[in-house]
Design a protein around this nucleic acid. Structure first.
Lengths: 179, 179
DNA sequence: CAGAGTAGACAATCTAGTTGTCGATCGCAA
DNA sequence: TTGCGATCGACAACTAGATTGTCTACTCTG
C-alpha cells in the first residue's frame, strides 16, 4: 500500500476512548492502536516538515523518496518497491519532479528508461524527515521507556517477518499486472 | 481522517527489510512497523470478510459501523467521531445504506436529523469482523506471547493517551525549535 | 421572535490509487 | 539477423475516500 495516499485520511478514531471502554482485549482495539500510533507519527512529521519549509511534502512522498534514495531509479522499479502500479509510481514521480525533489534524465544504457535521482532539496527533505521521525521516536522513549519501545519494535518486527511473503516483501504485488 | 480510504493504498514498503538494514533504531522504521502491522490486520480482515460473503465491505466501513453501533446515530455525529467532515460521513453512510448495512429514518424529535441504525445484516458484519479481528489478535499472541502483546497494547495506549489532540502533541514542535 | 448554530444535501475539487492500452525499446533465441 | 516476448514510460478513464464551500431547513436560546 502506498503509504502516502491515505495517510492523512485514516480515521484514527479514538483508540484511547475505545480502550477506556474496556475493549483492550479486542482485536479491533489492537488495530486502532496501531493505526493511531502510526498516524500520530505521520501527521506530526508532515506538519513539522511543513513548518520547516517543505509545505507540499506528504507522507507518500516520504516513502517514495526513501525508495528512490534506496536505489529505485526508475518508475517501474519504484512501483515494485512500493507495491503500487508503475502508473501510480509515475504519478508520484511527476509530483516530486515538479516540486523539485527529484530529477529525471534519460538512461544512457536503456533508452526506455529515465533515471531518477534526488536533487539537493530532495536529499534535504529526506534528511529532515528522518531527523523529525527520530526525534519523535526519542520522545516516545522518554515517555514510555526505551526498553519498552525497543520491545514494541522487536515484537512488531517479529510479527511482520512471520507474515506470508506478501506483506512486507515489496515484490508481493503481482509483478506488473499490467506491463 | 477516515480510516477507510487509504487503507488499502498504504505502502507497506518493506518494514522488515529496512529493519534488517539496521534501521531498527530509526523513527522511520518505527512508523513503518506500525503501519505494516495495522495493514496486515486490516487487509486480512477485509479478505476474510469477503470470503464470508461480505464482498464490498472495506476497512473504512468497519470503523464507521463501529461508531454507529457505538451511538453515532446521525451523519454529523458520525463525522465528529471519525474525525472527518460530515460530508465524508454522509457519503460513507450512503454507501452503507445502499448495501444494506444501515437504515435511516427521520428523527421524531429533530426534523433535521435522520436517525441511523444498523440493519440485521449490519449487525452481522460487525460481529463477524470483530470475530475475525479477535482471532487475528489471538494468533499474534500465539506467536509473540500474550504477555508481550499486552505490553504492546499498554504502551500504545499510554502513548496515545498522552496526545491531547487525539494524536498530535502540540508541544513537540515548540520544544524542537528551542532545542 | 430574532438570530445563532446545527443537520444534511449538493457540487466541485483533491489525492492517491486502479486497469487498460499503446508505441518504443531491449534482449534472447532460432 | 531477424523476430518475438517482455519491459518502460506515457496517456486515458475510472475509483475511493476525503476536502471546502454553499445552501436550505430546522432547533435552540436570550
Amino acid at each position: 500500500m502506498s503509504i502516502a495516499s491515505t495517510f492523512d485520511n485514516y480515521v484514527v478514531l479514538s483508540a484511547v476512548r475505545l480502550y477506556d471502554r474496556s475493549m483492550s482485549q479486542s482485536g479491533a482495539n489492537l488495530a486502532l492502536l496501531l493505526l493511531g500510533a502510526f498516524r500520530s507519527l505521520a501527521t506530526a512529521t508532515t506538519e513539522e516538515l511543513a513548518a520547516r519549509g517543505f509545505e507540499d511534502f506528504r507522507p507518500a512522498h516520504e516513502f517514495a523518496m526513501r525508495a528512490i534514495a534506496g536505489g529505485a531509479d526508475n518508475a517501474s522499479e519504484l512501483g515494485r518497491r512500493l507495491s503500487v502500479s508503475k502508473q501510480a509510481a509515475a504519478k508520484t514521480i511527476a509530483v516530486l519532479e515538479q516540486r523539485g525533489y527529484v530529477g529525471r534524465d534519460p538512461d544512457a544504457q536503456d533508452a526506455r528508461r529515465k533515471r531518477l535521482q534526488l536533487t539537493p532539496r530532495g536529499l534535504e527533505v529526506l534528511q529532515t524527515g528522518e531527523e523529525i521521525l527520530d526525534d519523535l521516536r526519542i520522545r516516545w522513549a522518554e515517555q514510555i521507556g526505551m526498553d519498552r519501545l525497543e520491545m514494541v519494535e522487536a515484537v512488531l518486527t517479529e510479527r511482520l517477518k512471520a507474515l506470508p511473503n506478501g506483506f512486507i516483501d515489496p515484490g508481493w504485488s503481482d509483478q506488473e499486472s499490467n506491463a
